[in-house]
C-alpha cells in the first residue's frame, strides 16, 4: 500500500460517506468530488490536525454552470497534493473562510470574492484584490457569462446586449 492509499484509507475510515467520492488521480494527487459545506469543514479540520496537511497552496475557482466549484489544494510534509472540492450555487455563493487555520489563503480567497463573486464569511478586512478600487458591483469577470466585450471601460458599466442571437453568430 503506497502513501496515497494510506491517506485515502485514513480519510475514508474517518468519513465513510467519502468512500465513493475520493480518488487517486495519479502519483501524489488525491482528488475528491464535490463536498457539502458541513462535510468540507469536518474534513478540513481532520486533514489539518491529524494528517498534517498544513500548507495550502492554492484555491482554484471554477465555473461549472449552475454552481461554482472551489478546489482547495493542500500539501503537507510528504509532498502529496490533496485537492478538496467544494461546490456552491451561483445564486447563493456563500463559503466560510479557512484563513484562521491556513493564514496563507487570504489572498486567494480575496480573489474568489473579486473574480467569482463568492461571499467569504470571516475573511479579514483588507484591500480589494486583484480588481481595482471602484470596480462596479456585481461584475465577476471569471464567471463564464461575463463577456469582456460588453464591458464599457470608460463608464465602467457592463451592458448585456438585447439580442443574444446576434452575439452568438459573431
Amino acid at each position: 500500500m503506497n502513501r496515497e492509499e494510506a491517506i485515502v484509507n485514513s480519510i475514508c475510515g474517518r468519513f465513510p460517506f467519502l468512500a465513493d467520492r475520493i480518488y487517486i488521480q495519479k502519483d501524489k494527487r488525491i482528488f475528491t468530488k464535490s463536498l457539502l459545506r458541513e462535510e468540507f469543514e469536518q474534513v478540513i479540520a481532520y486533514v489539518h490536525d491529524e494528517l498534517n496537511f498544513t500548507r495550502v497552496s492554492h484555491v482554484v475557482g471554477t465555473d461549472d454552470g449552475e454552481n461554482l466549484g472551489l478546489l482547495y489544494i493542500f500539501s503537507g510534509s510528504e509532498d502529496i497534493l490533496l485537492i478538496l472540492r467544494e461546490s456552491v450555487p451561483k445564486s447563493n455563493p456563500v463559503i466560510k473562510s479557512i484563513s484562521d487555520m491556513y493564514p496563507s489563503i487570504v489572498l486567494h480567497e480575496r480573489e474568489l470574492v473579486d473574480l467569482f463573486g463568492v461571499v467569504v464569511e470571516g475573511l479579514p478586512e483588507g484591500p480589494h484584490y486583484p480588481l481595482p478600487d471602484g470596480w462596479p458591483e456585481g461584475n465577476y469577470p471569471m464567471r463564464k457569462e461575463w463577456n469582456p466585450k460588453h464591458f464599457n471601460k470608460d463608464t465602467m458599466t457592463y451592458e448585456e446586449p438585447q439580442e443574444k442571437e446576434v452575439q452568438k453568430n459573431e
Binding site: L107, H128, Y129
Partner: peptide, 10 residues
C-alpha cells in the same frame, strides 16, 4: 499593509 493587484491583466 501589502497591496498588490496593479498588474491584473486577466
Amino acid at each position: 499593509v501589502v497591496g498588490v493587484g496593479y498588474n491584473h491583466r486577466g
